[in-house]
Amino acid sequence: MSQKNSDDEKRKSSQNEENALWSIVGYLLSGLIIWGGIGWGLDRWLGTTYLVLAGMLLGAGASIYLVWLRFGRD
């Protein structure tokens, strides 16, 4: 029984790792696209040029924070 449990544990942890890597990329990508997209839209609307960059930085920061919340915190 304990053999099965430790096998289960091992499988869970390596599966979590695979899952985590794919979702990290997904979070970063959507953070950049969503907030960068909002910045881009504001740029088009207000006629400025720097809001894309501001939005992308904000999105990257927010998604790294999200990654830390999901996977880095114990």
């Binding site: 985590a20 990290i24 970063l28 950049l32 990257a60 790294i64 830390w68 996977f71 880095g72």
Partner: peptide, 19 residues
């Protein structure tokens, strides 16, 4: 967690370049 955060930081730069 350290490896994943490092990966996230490095990957963020790659995606920055892509966008």
């Amino acid at each position: 967690p350290i490896a994943f955060l490092g990966f996230a930081l490095a990957e963020a730069l790659a995606l920055f370049g892509l966008v």
